Amino acid sequence: MPARRSPVRITRRSILTGLGATALAGLSGAAYGIGIEPMRLTVTSYVIRPLGSWPAALRLRLVAVSDVHACEPWMSAARIAGIVETVNGLGGDVVVLLGDYVAGTRLVTRFVDAAEWAPVLGALRAPLGTHAILGNHDWWEDRGAQKRGGGPTIAGDALGRVGIRVLENEAVPLDLRGERIWLAGLGNQIALLPGRRRFGHPRIGVDDLAGTLAQIPDGAPAILLAHEPDIFPKVPARIALTLSGHTHGGQVRLFGYAPVVPSRFGSRYAYGHVREQADLVVSGGLGMSGVPVRIGATPEIVVVDLVGAAAV
């Protein structure tokens, strides 16, 4: 005869205990996401043999910094200086900045002005220099640029004053160990906010992919910087690598999945190395926008080694 199980009594005390445990877990998670993970830093490395044109014997190291979102308490000038020191120690041939230097949330203790963050980024060092593009927040938070419907932008001017070249629909040649490669920077794809700023309102880009790539000689090895990864399906196979940011890896990643990604492709280009017609790397970035929380999406510096078929 099977043993009889006593019914479980659900009491007021057990309900309150359960609710209290749930609330405590929620508060602990929020505290971690607001005060701990955003202050961490990791270096994520990729070694890629490009599908696109690339010299067989050439190895190029790019170090990418994205989505700084300068503000206190999370991304002060002092913290940015520490990140710059780390970047300078990674042995990059070239440093690339992928946009969004300006704070992306109003839930801050203090905004860090371009006059503070730009000189700190100006201390970045690499043999082939530091090159930058602009992000959507560098445009959205610039009232003058929005009113004009175009540049210059405060962020772009600040970077230029400290010797960092801002590429906006422009391609430049870089010479490395006897090989010439091209670095192209795309204008922001959602730069302008016509009319009232509200969720779902149409946004206008200042990007010109065709005009940018037309500056690169046919068959030449090339790298594209594009803040938002949504342009990637239009990038031709001849481009060795596209580097993007913007998504913050979803900013909250649960078991490797981001439930909310600011992309019309959902999680397709949320984070990491994607290989389709060419190669794409999406950085999880450093800072935060909207709600200032990161869970499962540790702030990162990205290192990409592009390696030719005969390189060792």
Results as ranks from 00 to 15, higher is better:
Ile15Leu: 15
Asn169Arg: 06
Leu128Gln: 14
Lys234His: 15
Ala81Glu: 12
Ala297Glu: 08
Phe232Ser: 01
Ile83Ala: 05
Ile181Leu: 13
Pro119Ala: 04
Ala25Arg: 06
Ile223Phe: 01
Ser6Tyr: 02
Thr153Lys: 00
Phe255Gly: 06
Trp54Ala: 04
Ile295Ala: 15
Val102Cys: 11
Asp279Ser: 10
Arg165Asn: 07
Ile181Tyr: 04
Asp138Arg: 01
Val63Leu: 05
Ala237Phe: 01
Pro127Gly: 07
His273Leu: 11
Ser53Pro: 00
Asp230Trp: 05
Val47Ser: 13
Gly91Asp: 14
Gln277Asn: 10
Ile133Gln: 01
Pro50Asn: 02
Trp140Ser: 05
Leu128His: 03
Val303Ser: 05
Ala184Ile: 07
Leu225Lys: 01
Leu58His: 03
Ala210Arg: 13
Leu159Glu: 03
Thr153Ile: 04
Ile239Glu: 02
Ala123Phe: 03
Pro173Asn: 06
Asp93Tyr: 13
Leu97Asp: 05
Ser53Asp: 08
Ile34Arg: 14
Glu85Lys: 15
Ala155Glu: 13
Gln189Asp: 09
Arg5Gln: 15
Arg161Tyr: 00
His137Asp: 02
Val291Glu: 10
Asp230Cys: 05
Ala222Thr: 02
Ala310His: 13
Ala237Val: 08
Ala210Lys: 13
Ala171Gly: 10
Pro152Asn: 11
Pro233Met: 02
Val65Cys: 01
Val235Glu: 06
Asn188Glu: 15
Val261Asn: 06
Val8Ile: 15
Phe265His: 15
Leu280Ala: 06
Gly296Arg: 02
Asn136Ala: 00
Arg264Ala: 03
Lys234Cys: 12
Ser6Met: 09
Leu213Met: 09
Asp207Asn: 14
Arg61Met: 08
Leu97Met: 11
Ala81Pro: 07
Ala155Tyr: 05
Val172Met: 02
Trp139Met: 02
Pro2Tyr: 12
Arg253His: 01
Leu186Pro: 11
Ala297Ser: 15
His227Lys: 01
Tyr271Ile: 03
Ala145Trp: 01
Thr86Ala: 14
Leu186His: 11
Leu193Arg: 13
Leu90Arg: 10
Asp279Thr: 05
Trp54Met: 02
Arg143Met: 05
Ile15Asp: 11
Val47Cys: 00
Ala126Val: 09
Gly160Leu: 05
Gln251Glu: 14
Leu121Gln: 10
Pro229Glu: 06
Ala171Asn: 03
Gly52Glu: 02
Tyr257Ser: 07
Asp100Glu: 08
Pro262Gly: 12
Gly18Pro: 11
Trp140Leu: 00
Arg180Tyr: 07
Met288His: 10
Tyr271Leu: 15
Val261Ile: 12
Thr153Phe: 04
Phe255Gln: 02
Ile34Ser: 04
